[in-house]
Every structure is written in C-alpha cells, then in structure tokens.
C-alpha cells in the first residue's frame, strides 16, 4: 500500500507548505480546521467541543472560525451524539463527532455497532456513513476511571468500521485528513498521553495526498520487528535506541490502521527480521496483538525464528494512576519481550 504521508505527488510540491512545529493536539486542530474549510459538509460535534474547544483543546477556535452551527456542543449523551451523527450523514453531511474519553464510547456502542457500522450495508450502499469518530484514547495521564481505555479490539471486531490511531503530530494531521475523506465510518483513536508532544508537521498545502492507508516503518532495523500503534510507537522507538546500545537492531512498525491491518507491511518487515513483538496497552486476551500475531504467522511461518511475542496490558480493569505505569507496557517489559524472542530455542 502506498505511503503518501509526507511526500505529496510529484509536480505539486510548489503548493506544499513549509513544515510546522506542532503538538499532536495542534496538528489535529490544524487538520480539523482545513477539513472544515475544504468540505462545506463537514461538521464537528460533541461535548464541550464548541466554546471550550474540547477538554483537550483539539477543537479550540474552530467554532469561532467556522461558525457555531458547524462546530457545536451537544447535550451530554454519547448515544445521542452518535445517533445524531448517523442522521446527519443520512442528510448528506460528514460529521466528525467526538466522544470525550474512550470509556464514554461504551454508552454509544449500540449506535456505533448496530447502526453506524451497518447502515451502509443495511441500505445496500445507498446511505453511506462518512462519519469520523474521534476518541481520545489509551492511558498514561493518571486520569479517573474510564478515562484510559483501549478499545481498538472492540471496534476492529465490528464489520463496517475502520479503525486508525496516529502516533505523532504528522501522523495525527495526515491520518485525520485521510479519514475525513473516506466515505465509510472511521474510529480515530487519539493517544491522549501524546497530545502535547511536539513534532514536525508538513501540511498538505492545497495538494491533498491520495488516501492514506497502511502501516509505516517508524525506524528500520534488521534483527526484530516491534509492532505498535498510538502512544506505544514512541515507547518502542525509545526501546529500539536502548537495544541498539546492545547491538540489537530493532525495526519499529507503526501499524496506524488497526482495521484494515496492513498484512503486506507486516510480512515485509517480519520476513526480513524473522522475529516480532507486538506491543499494546489493551488487555492481552483477545487483544489486537493476537490478530497481528496471527497475520504474521500466516505470512511468515516458514521464516519465523520464534513465536510472535506480546507485551501488553493485563487482563484487569484499567488501574488507578498510581499503578498505571505497572500496567502499560514499559521499557523494561518490552526489553524482556525482545529478550524472550531473541533467546527462543526450538524445543
């Protein structure tokens, strides 16, 4: 799958804007600003997204700039937000609803799973659902209960949904722009612990790249592939630096799209390194790591030097802040995972 992330099509470079230093929050804000300017049917709705600009300020200033009709606060009810977005899509709009925190997607599950994901199918393609649902996701900010959930496996399991998670400001900008061009529902999982991390962002500058799909290699390596998404990509990059000190050359694959999963990218990477560790914050059992491991096994069984290892959260409710560093895969646990794979001996 082509990666058109930072390299606009040849011949359109003159329209490209210079790179900007932005946080993930700022990059997402820029993307939404451009989406609203470019697509008159785009709407932003949710709790506190208007005047306040969202609790993470991702929608800051958008209501003032694009009008409080197009960027509007809703009553505090997630099922209502999603159900309303479905109706707005039926009326020809491209809603970009926000669920304020991952755990509050649960009250909207009926609308997401039974309605949003199925309307295109039920209506035989006559009522498309171009809805981009933004969900501040994952843990790492010592938040109250239900404010640090990892729901990717839940959403990825639902036919009719596409799921994506950016790992840095550039990814956030480009993937949100890409998601908002899609004619299908996309669950856009923003790693909230990375909102304030800055990075270089090259805006499209009026030369929209084609639809962005597939995984990307965040760091090339030869000995082992770390597969991650969201906030775990940055952690895996740290791990790779530490491993390099011991002479282990780790490749970090940023999966980006959790549905559909880029099997070709996984096969290319692990086909080369012959070892893989999947890292995610979500609980282990039936987590997306199992799916990734199976895709790798199907494609690379003959060349694998060890079973695909998983370093994940535990099968426990997401713990309070004091314990979350024990729960979220930390550098040591990922290094242990790497060690297990490297030292694996066939029995």
């Amino acid at each position: 799958m082509p990666d058109t992330l930072t390299t606009p099509d040849a011949g359109t470079t003159e329209a490209t804007t210079a790179p900007l230093e932005l946080s993930l929050q700022g990059a997402l804000n820029l993307a939404l600003d451009e989406i609203l300017a470019e697509n008159p049917k785009a709407l932003v709705l949710g709790e506190d997204v208007g005047t306040l600009g969202g609790v993470f300020r991702v929608t800051s200033g958008l209501a003032a700039k694009h009008g409080s009709e197009r960027v509007f606060d809703t009553p505090l009810a997630e099922s209502g937000i999603l159900g309303m977005s479905i109706g707005l899509a039926m009326a020809g709009f491209h809603p970009i609803p926000e669920v304020q925190f991952d755990g509050f997607a649960y009250p909207a599950v009926n609308q997401i799973v039974c309605q949003l994901a199925r309307m295109n199918y039920r209506s035989r393609g006559t009522l498309p659902m171009p809805v981009t649902l933004r969900v501040p996701s994952f843990g790492g900010i010592r938040a109250p209960e239900h404010h640090g959930e990892s729901l990717e496996a839940l959403f990825a399991h639902v036919p009719g949904l596409k799921v994506v998670s950016p790992s840095d400001p550039q990814q956030g900008y480009s993937l949100l722009r890409a998601a908002a061009r899609m004619a299908d529902p996309v669950i856009f999982m923003e790693p909230k612990s990375r909102y304030w991390q800055k990075g270089q962002v090259t805006p499209e500058g009026g030369a929209p790249s084609s639809k962005l799909s597939g995984a990307r290699i965040a760091r090339p390596g030869r000995h082992l592939t770390l597969v991650a998404w969201g906030a775990m990509v940055a952690r895996c990059l740290q791990v790779a630096e530490l491993a390099a000190e011991d002479g282990i050359d780790v490749e970090v694959l940023d999966l980006r799209w959790l549905k559909p999963i880029d099997g070709d990218a996984l096969a290319a990477s692990v086909g080369k390194t012959r070892r893989a560790v999947v890292v995610h914050e979500a609980p282990r059992t039936s987590g997306l790591g199992a799916e990734v491991a199976q895709v790798i096994t199907e494609r690379c069984f003959g060349t694998l030097k060890a079973p695909v290892e998983r370093v994940t959260g535990f099968d426990v409710p997401y713990p309070s802040g004091d314990l979350e560093d024990e729960y979220i895969p930390n550098i040591d646990r990922i290094l242990f995972g790497i060690q297990r794979v490297l030292e694996y001996k066939r029995g």
């Binding site: 197009r70 159900g83 309303m84 977005s85 479905i86 109706g87 709009f93 609308q111 309605q115």
Partner: peptide
C-alpha cells in the same frame, strides 16, 4: 430491528435540514 434504534437518526436528519 432495534426498537428506538432510529429515533436519534431522525433527530440528526432533521437537524441537518435546519443546518442546510
């Protein structure tokens, strides 16, 4: 098939008319 499943859709569609 979901009782009350589409009630919110009607509200969204209707709000879309006022936005239009």
């Amino acid at each position: 098939a979901v009782v009350a499943g589409s009630v919110l859709h009607a509200v969204g569609w209707a709000h879309g008319q006022t936005l239009e």
